[in-house]
Design a protein around this nucleic acid. Structure first.
Lengths: 239, 239
DNA sequence: TTAAATTTGTTCGTATGTATA
DNA sequence: CTATACATACGAACAAATTTA
């Protein structure tokens, strides 16, 4: 009966709902109609409607609360990285950094390879959640080989940036970092740590920092919530 | 009959499938079992199974081909940005840049505001797809006010980086760029341009470039496929 | 305080369409 | 043309969280 539709229904509805947000018909904080209502409005099944809403939730444009309703989400928090993204983790804008743990453990295989370590080494792993505007935004794991890691204390880590702390505590100079980032989706565990929903978009930022002899010193994996934050940088051209 | 499960089935299956990829039981390029087979293996409905696979496809770990099968995807292509992410778009690694259009049109409201332009101006819009390793990776839209835009030709744009071309053609000096990036999902249209699937993760990179008087010169919005690419940067510390 | 109604979250079964072999 | 595999869509049921009566 239906004509050959090139564009699926769930996508059309997604665009319609996006339009209501973009035009301001639905404003930030507004409660949108219930799924039942939207189903009858657009004449689709609940599964199809939810598929449309799912995509907007993953992008951080809508927020669902079970038993309550669905709301238009607040705008994203800009995270300024001062040109050095390796320093995101310690700049002044992040008043609160909560350390989940800092302890010695066997080094995972992929980290061993990335840091050019010997077989089956021990490593210190730092796990922390960094907040901005009173929301948990970044989940970071830092891997520090034990010869350096044993010289750091939790108190130091709370107070000082790693880029300042390591040269000072370990007596080495840091030269450069190789950083890469890619978009991903939060797992159940990561979402839980960040007080977010599983399946949300995020940026996975990985940085390896090297000393003046180009020897890897430590590795950081930072997961930045994409529904609540965007990363901003200023670049000055050297001509 | 089922005990109160805290973790939904679709998520457990997602983890199981991820494990098969991570451990190498399923290798790059491998065809994985059909949805029917996986349904009976894990004893779930097709909807639940597809929900698990959907997440892995969005992250670029699996690729589905309708009528054929589902495959383990190739590793991501690293995109090196030489410390200047604003120059990603023109560095030597991108042999092929295909211009979709370059023409004058009314300036969208959000761009007008970001470039601090007067009311209802005209603007040149450049749309192009940039390839790496023979795959379309970046979809870029550049907005150039008409006083500068009219001095550029499509031939110039094909051959020269905007950061080199604009100073030379327009007689101005560029000083800095303010750049921000966030994760997002591809729309139907964007996916089509990039020969990808709608709903895939991507990075939306927006940069505004300023002249020496801190006046905005042009704006670029680059959409980088997250399933096939990750962005890499090297940072040198100035002590 | 309790119970019922509402709203979102998960899962199933089924049907039909589209692309490929 | 047919069988297979992925894609979309519907309807129903129950669970879990919240609000309302």
């Amino acid at each position: 009966m239906e004509s050959t539709e090139l564009i699926p229904k769930y996508y059309k509805i997604q665009e319609l709902l996006l339009g209501k947000i973009r035009t301001g018909e639905w404003k930030v904080g507004d409660e949108i109609p219930s799924e039942q209502d939207l189903c009858s409005t657009y004449n689709v099944s609940r599964g199809t409607l939810r598929r449309a809403i799912d995509a907007l939730v993953r992008q951080g444009l809508l927020t669902r609360i079970q038993g309550k309703s669905t709301f238009v989400a607040k705008p994203k928090i800009p995270i300024f990285s001062n040109g050095f993204r390796a320093d995101i983790r310690s700049s002044g804008q992040f008043a609160n950094s909560r350390i989940l743990y800092y302890d010695k453990r066997p080094c995972p295989d992929d980290i061993t390879a990335l840091l050019s370590l010997d077989n089956a080494p021990m490593i210190y792993e730092l796990s922390r959640v960094i907040e901005a505007e009173h929301e948990p935004i970044i989940l970071e794991h830092v891997y520090i080989p034990d010869n350096y890691g044993e010289k750091l204390t939790v108190d130091d880590l709370i107070q000082t940036s790693l880029l300042d702390l390591i040269p000072q505590a370990c007596g080495i100079l840091l030269k450069k970092a190789i950083e890469s980032y890619e978009p991903t989706l939060l797992t159940q565990e990561e979402a839980h740590r960040l007080n977010a929903k599983a399946g949300q978009v995020a940026i996975l930022d990985q940085a390896i920092t090297f000393d003046i002899n180009n020897i890897p010193v430590f590795l950081s994996k930072a997961l930045i919530r994409g529904d609540r934050a965007r990363v901003a940088t200023e670049i000055t051209f050297t001509i």
